[in-house]
Design a protein around this nucleic acid. Structure first.
Lengths: 338, 338
DNA sequence: GACAGCCAGGCAAGCGCATTCCTGAGAGCG
DNA sequence: CGCTCTCAGGAATGCGCTTGCCTGGCTGTC
């Protein structure tokens, strides 16, 4: 790799001068020298060593984000928002997938810290694990103590800047809609127990139902993998309960799609025999059949806000922005069967 | 940020010793000193400055990938494969989205080069743009000249290691299936004209059809945005041609989903009135209604192979691996209407 | 008891760059 | 013509770290 010194030698100038013309320093350089340097840069295909630059002048321009899984549509959308703002502001993005593994999440925070990133955005649910939370906050605090910025999306486990989707409210909206349609036997596909997002959504749902005296017994809650197949499996289990639920609530859309697929395979009609509801309103939700009734979360906006928070100068106290949830009625829900 | 020197001072040793215990150097260090250093590291929450490390010992451990758009399901899957291998081998991944902009792609290659990444993987279609191709190859060559490794997925514009999905074969498979079902008036939703992937798929399709004397006139090919809405718009245009096509081939699944949505909105039955075919077999393809007949590309495998190629030591000559395409028949296709 | 051999740990160089400080040459003025 | 002021460009330093090399104290052997 060609170095600054190579460029300088070829141009017949000192490295200092070469550096100045390459960086457009305020210090004036004679036109002839400038051109010689530029030509040498082109000839040598010189690209500055970013590590050396960062060592010499520690300005942090990279932002790290830790998401559960970019290929999950939820995070794909959130990431799109994060990316948009980062790019607009000329920041490079390092995307790390934790695959919902708290240990890996911790490792990535450490790694990002070593990379001297300007900010870290943690996107996705927190974990019900006090030990983990303590450790995470310690690491985050150490990072912030050195000027690093942190923003989180949808998690309670960090007390700094955060943008929060209305998970509980979304749960309530679903509960109200179910009651309106006369459902009282409700099955829930809940995703991994360890995620706080799940608890939040479940709590909202429970609250709404309890208002009308409807219970959510533990046997009608299935903790499944957060994807399509997890949803299908959980649906099969719920159908095996007796009496079977008249409505199935999946706590994200991927699992709802799995539920739809299994019901179709079993010849069970949606919504005539059973209603299905999702959560998130991921892009494909309107395109499955029947189209999915779900709770819309402003996914891209979550990312946009979080990155904005992370990149704006730190304010004295933590800023928490709440983003609304909204019920989207589509074809997968109808009046209770009995 | 605490530095190595801080740690050394606190432990009462030299920076050299501290470095050695932290890196687990082969050189032995007395147990007592080792413990003192470890304690200092913990107390100070010391994390080595990755840039300084990379400067001092230029071992490149991060890999950069440039994709068109991670939130596109196609690339989400490919990225999953890339990520898997990178993680297994302990490499950090920098993901850059070019959003199908050649200029941005060039910029990212440059940036990744400056980051001293060990390898660059370019995923996604090349461009019909000779100027761009030349520039790209120049930059890539300069990068490889300094020991950088390059692998590409599904593009012809670089002569090094590559893994190629069978785009043309996939097009042929679709053509054959169409002929088998008796379709002769075929509309194509083609995605951006500038992408070589589109041309490849189109060429295969044309070849199969030409075998039976079926033509693909230019007015039945719509060059649309590569997403759902682009597919819907293009479908509306194709329906306006007279006589309307009996089958619509979308050159990726997202556009096919858009086609399905528009047809449903217009009350046109699939496959009775018109057949619809997609390309890629993205995860959701089986869950739309009717389920999408499409060409399956081993998306995750593409990523796995490419990253493997990129991380394995360079061989003398370029290695090109071809991955097969396979037709997946589902509910969206049927015999021609007339 | 003296010397060779060995090993833990420190010293210092250098990775590639930005930047401060200094030098030397030219311009301007008396 | 000589002096001072100005400014372009170069020398040198340091960012945080790794590592080759050297030192000093120890053990072992004859």
């Amino acid at each position: 790799m060609a170095t600054l010194a190579d460029v300088a030698r070829r141009a017949g100038v000192s490295p200092a001068t070469a550096s100045r013309v390459i960086n457009g320093s305020s210090k004036p350089v004679a036109n002839e020298l400038r051109e010689r340097v530029l030509r040498a840069v082109a000839d040598l295909r010189y690209v500055p060593n970013a590590h050396a630059q960062l060592l010499a002048r520690p300005q942090r321009s990279v932002v790290g984000i830790v998401v559960h899984d970019v290929s999950d549509p939820y995070f794909a959308e959130v990431t799109r928002g994060l990316q948009r703002v980062a790019t607009e502001r000329g920041r490079l993005l390092i995307i790390c997938n934790s695959y919902r593994d708290p240990v890996r999440e911790l490792e990535y925070v450490e790694l990002l810290r070593g990379q001297q990133v300007a900010a870290i955005v943690l996107a996705g649910s927190g974990y019900h694990d006090a030990g983990f939370t303590t450790l995470l906050n310690e690491k985050l605090a150490a990072y912030e103590a050195t000027g690093g910025r942190v923003a989180v999306i949808g998690r309670h486990d960090h007390s700094g800047d955060a943008v929060m989707p209305a998970n509980a409210t979304g749960g309530e909206l679903i509960g109200q809609e179910l009651l309106r349609l006369g459902h009282r036997r409700i099955g829930v596909i809940a995703g991994p127990r360890i995620l706080t997002t799940i608890t939040d959504r479940l709590t909202g749902l429970r609250r709404a139902l309890a208002g009308q005296g409807v219970e959510l017994p533990e046997e009608r809650i299935r903790y499944a993998d957060f994807d399509r197949d997890g949803g299908a499996r959980a649906t099969a289990e719920l159908l095996a309960t007796d009496p079977a639920p008249t409505a199935i609530v999946a706590l994200n859309d991927s699992m709802a799609v799995g539920a739809l697929a299994l019901l179709r395979a079993r010849g069970i009609r949606v919504p005539q025999d059973v209603s299905v509801l999702g959560f998130d309103d991921m892009p494909i939700a309107a395109d499955v059949t029947p189209a999915l009734t779900t709770v819309r979360l402003p996914l891209v906006e979550l990312g946009v806000r979080a990155m904005t928070l992370a990149l704006d100068p730190a304010s004295g106290q933590p800023r928490v922005e709440s983003l609304p949830a909204e019920l989207v009625r589509r074809g997968s829900t109808g009046p209770a069967a009995d």
